[in-house]
Simulated assay, not measured.
Amino acid sequence: MSLRFRKKVLLAKIETTYGTDATPTGAANAMLASNISIQPMEGSDAERGHDQPFLGNDGTIPYDLHSRMTFQIELAGSGTAGTAPAWGPLLRACGAAETIAASTSVTYNPISDGFESATIYLNIDGTLYALLGARGTATFRVNASAIPIIEFEFTGLWTKPVAQALPTADVSAFQKPLVGSAANTPTFTIDGTGHVMRNFALMLGNEVEARFLIGAEAIEIIDRAETLETQIEAVALSTLDPFALARDQGTVAVSLVHGKTAGSIATIAVPNAQVQRPGSPVEAQGIKEWPLNFAPKPVTGNDQWTLTLT
């Protein structure tokens, strides 16, 4: 019988001990994801290279095996202020701290040590692919006339895929998102001034390395360099002069608020974004727009960005 590629269940759970299977379940750890892709057996192949009295292949030995996975999660809160979203473990495994203020807010920000890891299961119609010790990076995207998303890319230690029945996945904790619009995205400011925005992307820029040594194998976050890109309606230079700011290595605060009701409001704040050289002006529906680029910089450390759910 043919196996259906669309029949997928994605599970993720923070590990207590690095690289030890946290055994996520469909009842407690299911993820409502889209555009899931997996490279199940990345690595290298060692050529044996024997000298022989004839021509032909000598075979290879695979080594440094690991897996990579990408997918998208809708950017929506838990529906209750002060309750972490179901996708919170994924962001924690991307080098972010989760701070909960009961009944008020959940805030995520980058960290520089003490990185958590996750066990991630992907079951495709009866075949289980498991990533252990998974760590990754993410991108927040909020675009006009589109569902806001978080794009995740994970690397994990390899385990051999096994046959396992599709689990029952409870994704009831995931809330319906709001499309980016003037009504649903009430605030977008650069240097404290509101702007008309077409698209927004904050890339966390984690540098993730698979590290294989004798005595230790791990997936490590070794560095990060966030980038922020947005396209806005061009304005008078007296309102915003990105060319002068880029010339002078000027920094500005960038803030975006998406959502309208308690439990579903997401605020992305970048308090110290260095303005970089703008892209070429573009025409959209007869209107001039600017592609702008920023390099988020630390102020006191681990504060390049925050995502606050209220």
Rank of each mutant, 00 (worst) to 15 (best):
W158K: 05
Q164E: 13
G156P: 08
F174Y: 15
K176N: 15
A169T: 02
E153P: 02
A165W: 00
S172G: 09
V179E: 15
P161D: 06
W158C: 09
A182C: 09
T155I: 15
F154G: 05
E153T: 14
Q164R: 07
Q164H: 08
D170N: 03
T155K: 13
Q175M: 08
D170G: 00
W158V: 04
A169G: 04
A183W: 15
L157V: 10
G156Y: 10
V171W: 07
A163D: 08
A169R: 00
A182M: 12
V179G: 12
P161K: 05
A163L: 14
A169L: 02
F154S: 05
P177D: 12
A163H: 07
L166H: 01
A169I: 02
G156Q: 05
P161I: 06
P167I: 06
V162R: 00
Q175Y: 09
A163I: 11
K176D: 15
F174T: 08
L178D: 14
L178T: 15
K176W: 06
Q164N: 03
K176P: 14
V162M: 09
T155P: 09
A183P: 11
T168C: 06
A183K: 09
A165S: 05
V171S: 01
F174C: 06
A163Y: 03
V171H: 10
V179R: 14
F154R: 02
A173E: 12
T168M: 00
G180C: 09
L166N: 01
T159A: 06
F174S: 07
L157G: 09
A182P: 04
T159Y: 09
S181P: 09
F154V: 00
Q175D: 11
P161S: 09
F154W: 05
F174R: 02
A182T: 07
K160R: 14
F174W: 04
V171M: 11
V162H: 10
T155D: 09
L166P: 04
S181V: 06
Q175G: 13
T155W: 14
